[in-house]
Nucleic acid binder design. Structure first.
Ligand code: MN
Ligand code: MN
Ligand code: MN
Ligand code: MN
Lengths: 219, 219
DNA sequence: AACTATTTTTAGACCTATCTAAATTATTTA
DNA sequence: TAAATAATTTAGATAGGTCTAAAAATAGTT
């Protein structure tokens, strides 16, 4: 079995490579893992020995098929647990992540398949991120940041980029939740801030920074 | 925070002292933890430094109030998780322990209080062991081994001593489950084996070894 | 191409948890 | 009570994971 630490490295590498497809740099891993580059190098050697990553000195790394399988399994468990906490135990969407960081390392095939069944096989987690199925297949959404859309577009909110509790709580307070309809009423030229309506009712002003961190599709 | 290992040592010490109240020996801990006496000595020093146990060389150990609190919290989590797996995820009583051994180390007050609530505050786990409440209070049962009773006694099965999967599966196969009525029809003088009936219907022969591992109260 | 700045790796330590083998202390037993 | 046996502790190693400081390699820039 892989240690919790090894699993976390694989997950970090997966997420870093996810949208770029270039090999991942030592420094970027160090930043994501909140550790030092020297520690990362040490770990990369160990992961490479176990054939979980392809690694050549100074050339960055990417996951092997075996490593990707592990990463996807950890991500699957993380997102299913988040969903479980939200749906069954009345957690808020800003409370689920930290506990899921622990639960994602519990090792039991039956446990996770039963949780999946118990939740009726959800496709997305509380933040709109897709949940890999038992084979690691992911159903990708083609959503964009709200900041990419233009005046008069009618959108459905599908996810968030920033997962921090403080951002999620701000969205709560503003009435912005997954599934809501967002209409762009005005784009302020100066700073790209937006005037929007939520579900055709409430009007809200959001900064470009906020808009960049909300994902949506056109309705 | 305490490491998983430290939590496991405290739990082991708690269980060893539970029914004897003498200080616990290094060797008995080593046996329970499946490790070597030398490793135990190392760990005892660390636990003593953290004021979790009282330890004097060669004199055995016992838990401090602080250490007992940790042990009870781990036991509470273990038993609640076992109950959760059984009740909500269709695990069998011989499957819950191994997964609970992992889940008992998840650190979240809210998680465990919500699980407790979700299960409607159960008092006993799937094996009949009492579940400590949030304050560490345990509702003890005054049950005895079936081997302690005598001919014609009418009993209610309340627990098991041996928790191994192989023993639990044997009980399943024999129709012996918690809550069942057991009547002692005959005690074989030679080897103390028993002829019993279950719920006034099925007749069964069990060895003294089996009888010692089944707990019951008089009905 | 040569110099500089950045990134990455190595060297050397430290901490936790574990082990085996040897030494020490406690307990039995004759 | 002295010898033998059992229990416990110490000494010395190993392995995983981390760190700082220094060295080496790469990338950028005149
Ligand atoms: Mn998360
Ligand atoms: Mn999430
Ligand atoms: Mn158990
Ligand atoms: Mn149990």
């Amino acid at each position: 079995m892989n240690s919790f630490t090894a699993e976390n490295y694989l997950k970090a590498i997966y997420k870093l490579v996810e949208h770029s497809s270039n090999p991942v740099s030592t420094n970027s891993i160090a930043e994501k893992m909140n550790t030092k580059a020297a520690s990362v190098t040490d770990m990369l050697k160990k992961l490479a020995n176990k054939k979980l990553i392809n690694y050549q000195k100074y050339q960055g790394v990417y996951l092997t098929t075996k490593g990707e399988k592990v990463a996807l399994s950890v991500i699957r468990k993380h997102r299913l647990w988040e969903m479980f906490l939200l749906e069954k135990l009345d957690f808020k969407w800003d409370e689920v992540h930290d506990v899921a960081e622990q639960l994602e390392h519990i090792n039991s095939e039956k446990l996770i398949s039963q949780i999946d069944k118990f939740l009726n096989y959800p496709k997305f987690d509380p933040h709109g991120d897709p949940i890999p199925d038992a084979n690691g297949k992911i159903q990708q959404q083609k959503s964009n940041s709200v900041s990419h859309y233009k005046k008069n577009d009618a959108l459905i909110m599908t996810g968030v980029v920033d997962h921090s509790a403080v951002f999620l709580q701000y969205l709560d307070k503003s009435g912005l939740a997954l599934g809501n309809e967002i209409r762009i009423k005005e784009v302020i030229e100066f700073d790209k801030s937006l005037k929007i309506t939520i579900n055709k009712k409430n009007t809200l002003f959001i900064s470009n920074e906020v808009a960049k961190n909300i994902l949506a599709i056109t309705r």
